[in-house]
Nucleic acid binder design. Structure first.
Ligand SMILES: [Mn+2]
Ligand SMILES: [Mn+2]
Length: 789
DNA sequence: GGGATAA
DNA sequence: TTATCCCAACGCACA
DNA sequence: TGTGCG
């Protein structure tokens, strides 16, 4: 009998558990699929409780695909299948022989004749738990084994868990910290999840022993004395358990009141209730490895069903939307969603527990107000706006939450801001609108934001005067490509193409703790912004498979190395008798494919395959030398700007993300590379003459004497530069960031723009480089104007 | 990161 | 069977 | 015609 069953059958309230040294072996069997095997790795898939896990195991000496049959999977804590770490034991285990003994008789069972019979027997022994596994006389150290028998299908393995006992008898770590929930934007319905009310109180762990109860807060503070009625009640209810729950004070309507809890002194201050929602420990058994569903079952059996102060909170399976609605009706803070199969992950803010709020807070810009004709109020509703991609959008109207006094004060502030023209596209509203200059900020609460970006159920909370209106953007948790930090390999469809993302935990920037997963998430987030500048362009690959400090190499020819769906562009070098092929980015999938290949930076041509000889932009590359630095780059960039502005040539600057800056001039595919280069030469020559003290156009490094190099020669076919929004393989994961010319001034730092902050910045600023792909300049007219100078 | 090839 | 290798290149500027 | 350069 498994321990879980055993625990379930017990009535914990009636008699103490007998102390017994006997352990109950528990073994679990799963069929693991070998999904994709390369020369260097096995990729395993395991479908468990409806969730697909996958992980890569590097091939070691014992992992030949033809013959070797065994790998060991170990893990740190019991029963959490998401944290598999692939480990290949060193040494030679012979030609695929896994010796398997019957644990009772210790007779080898690998001598059974016939494949089918062998497999059948093995499975039987695994199922009834009578199996011990040894490798050449040595007991397996790991808690799991992957076993392949000769009778099994090629892509199937058996994963055997052969722990002696589960849950374990071990000391509870001290200090012990509770599992935490991740904030989640919207409710959902899913039968794999349980939903419960989020109570507004103190998170309290209760250590219940025979003669003593301790109530401990999340920060390790003792609440035993302060909330002694709860401690006393727990003492009656049970013993030898560690419970997790929320301690609340309810008002006369039964609603938890946080303020009242803070000031609670005696029973006259309100009714204390301890809502228990998890059982972590019972009679020396650590239950954290059990799935939530089983812990809940045990908890239900352990707690009395009708105790006035120690209660099990209400839970419902699958119907999150419904529960959030009722929580909102009741004026509660929100709900918690918990994955039924999840283990208790101490101290972790886990994606298996999600907090979903009934009320969200957001700042918004007041862009006007309406007034109903007949209304005695000064105004009926405020019109709200938000910036998205650098543009102001209508975000709904708020008609509640302000007092008459607040209305009078607001009207005073509105007076000097009244304008005739709307600052946005006019929403269709019945009541007459007074438009305001979009500078005033307010804070609102709301329940939901619609697809169109309109607040639902907004309520006014007050004026904000500590921020500029342009700083206000939607505080929305981005949907990440790879949100689950416990998966080391993920197979995912992007643009209808199946991509395998590997080695997601590999530290690409160890100092910044940034992983390959972070890099992929970054590019997925900025894909809409970067794609215009890399789509349909052949790519020069610069690969860093082991992170920015690791080995690196350039790659252009990808013939035969990329899947069929990847677009390519043929080329030849001198003496080639066959075509070589550039990789061409077409969509998010091909971009992410590159990134998974270890391409930290993206290096596209200046022209597309549609018109390969005609670049979209002309570029000036400002590279500081050994005796110059970024501050001179800023100076010379501004001089270039002044010059171009004086002759009416548009130009757009970006940091390079490395040491210098890039300036792009739109050409609109109208001129050849040679024309672009000669145009750049003219511009750079003019600027260099003015700044000869610290700039140079010399191709030979030594002749530059450490001066800043004005590089115009990259205006040439097949030459590449790091794309806008490209990350660079540099400390701090810097990004090549398009700027306003006003930002190009002393004090600007390369590190201001990096993998961590650029996605949010882009949401505010939009794509500043958009005009680079717009109408190209009239080069001849521009040259004529330059000549007049 | 992973296919090709030398040892 | 395992370890290592290999993954660009192009044309301009100056000697 | 070779070498450095990005
Ligand atoms: Mn540069
Ligand atoms: Mn350069």
């Amino acid at each position: 009998m498994g321990l879980t069953t055993y625990l379930k059958k017990r009535d914990f309230r009636k008699s103490p558990e007998p102390q017994s040294g006997k352990t109950n072996p528990k073994q679990l069997i799963f069929v693991v699929q070998e999904h994709h095997a390369s020369q260097h790795h096995f990729d395993f898939r395991l479908e468990m409780e409806g969730v697909l896990k996958s992980w890569a195991v590097p091939k070691g000496p014992s992992m030949n695909p033809a013959d070797k049959r065994l790998a060991i999977i170990t893990e740190d804590h019991p029963y959490d299948y998401k944290d598999f770490e692939g480990v290949i034991p060193k040494g030679n285990y012979g030609a695929g022989k896994v010796k398997i003994w019957d644990s009772g008789t210790y007779t080898p069972i690998d001598t059974v004749k016939g494949k089918a019979a062998q497999e059948k027997l093995l499975l039987k022994q695994l199922k009834d738990g009578s199996l011990k596994i040894q490798l050449h006389g040595k007991k397996l150290k790991g808690e799991f084994a992957l076993v392949k028998t000769k009778g099994m299908e090629d892509n199937s393995w058996l994963l055997i868990k052969h722990k002696d006992e589960s849950p374990t008898t071990a000391k509870l770590p001290d200090p012990f910290s509770p599992m935490l929930a991740t904030l989640h934007a919207a409710p959902f319905n899913d039968d794999d999840w349980q939903f419960e009310i989020k109570w507004d109180g103190y998170r309290v762990l209760a250590y219940v022993n025979d003669h003593k109860v301790d109530l401990i807060s999340r920060n390790g503070r003792s609440y035993t004395k302060k909330f002694h009625p709860i401690a006393e009640a727990l003492q009656e209810v049970g013993s030898n358990a560690v419970l997790d729950g929320e301690l609340v004070v309810t008002d006369d309507k039964g609603i938890a009141r946080f303020q009242q809890l803070q000031h609670w002194k005696t029973e006259a201050d309100g009714d204390l209730i301890y809502y228990v929602f998890d059982l972590i420990w019972y009679n020396g058994k650590d239950l954290r490895g059990l799935p939530l569903s089983e812990r809940m079952q045990l908890l239900k059996e352990m707690l009395p069903s009708d105790h006035p102060t120690i209660r099990m909170g209400f839970t419902i399976q699958g119907r999150g939307t419904e529960l959030l609605d009722s929580a909102r009706e009741m004026g509660l803070e929100g709900i918690i969603a918990k994955r039924l199969s999840s283990t208790y992950q101490s101290g972790k803010r886990s994606p298996d527990w999600l907090k979903i709020k009934t009320q969200n807070r957001q700042e918004a810009i007041i862009i006007g107000y309406t007034k109903k004709e007949e209304s005695p109020k000064l105004f009926s509703a405020l019109l709200l706006g938000l910036y998205k991609n650098g543009q102001l959008h209508y975000a709904g109207k708020v008609g509640t939450g302000f007092t008459d006094k607040q209305q009078r004060e607001l009207m005073k502030q509105f007076k000097p801001l009244v304008v005739k023209q709307a600052s946005i596209k006019k929403p269709s509203l019945r009541d007459p609108i007074t438009w305001l200059k979009p500078v005033l900020l307010c804070e609102i609460s709301y329940t939901e934001l619609t697809e169109q970006g309109i607040f639902r159920h907004p309520s006014f909370k007050g004026i904000r005067d500590d921020k500029a209106a342009t700083e206000v953007v939607l505080e929305k948790e981005p949907d990440l490509l790879l949100p689950d930090r416990s998966l080391k390999t993920v197979i995912k469809k992007v643009n209808q193409k199946e991509l395998t993302f590997t080695n997601l935990d590999k530290l690409f920037w160890p100092e910044d703790k940034l992983t390959k997963r972070d890099l992929l998430n970054y590019y997925a987030q900025v894909a809409p912004y970067i794609l215009p500048y890399i789509k349909d362009r052949p790519q020069s690959l610069y690969r860093f498979p082991d992170g920015y400090k690791g080995k690196r190499f350039y790659q252009k020819d990808i013939t035969g190395k990329v899947p069929d769906w990847a677009a390519t562009f043929p080329y030849r070098t001198e003496g080639d008798r066959k075509d070589k092929n550039y990789l061409v980015v077409k969509d998010e999938a091909s971009l992410l494919y590159l990134v998974n290949f270890g391409c930290i930076e993206i290096n596209p041509w200046s022209s597309t395959i549609k018109k390969p000889g005609y670049p979209d932009w002309c570029l000036l590359d400002l590279d500081p030398g050994s005796k110059t630095d970024f501050s001179q780059v800023i100076d010379v960039a501004n001089l270039i700007h002044d010059l171009l502005e004086s002759v009416d040539i548009p130009a757009y600057p970006k940091t390079s993300g490395s040491t210098g800056m890039h300036v792009y001039i739109p050409l609109g595919k109208k001129y050849t590379y040679e024309q672009s280069r000669e145009f750049a030469r003219v511009l750079v020559t003019l600027v260099q003459q003015e700044t000869s003290r610290y700039t140079s156009m010399e191709r030979t490094v030594s002749k530059r004497q450490g001066k800043l190099y004005l590089d115009f020669l990259q205006n040439r076919s097949q030459a590449t530069l790091a794309a806008p929004y490209s990350v660079r393989p540099k400390p701090g994961a810097t990004v090549s960031m398009p700027l306003h010319w006003e930002e190009v001034k002393q004090g600007l730092k390369m590190q201001d723009f990096n993998l961590r902050n650029v996605p949010a910045l882009l949401n505010e600023r939009g794509d500043l480089f958009k005009p680079v792909l717009g109408k190209g300049i009239d080069m001849m007219a521009a040259l004529k104007r330059l000549q007049q100078l």
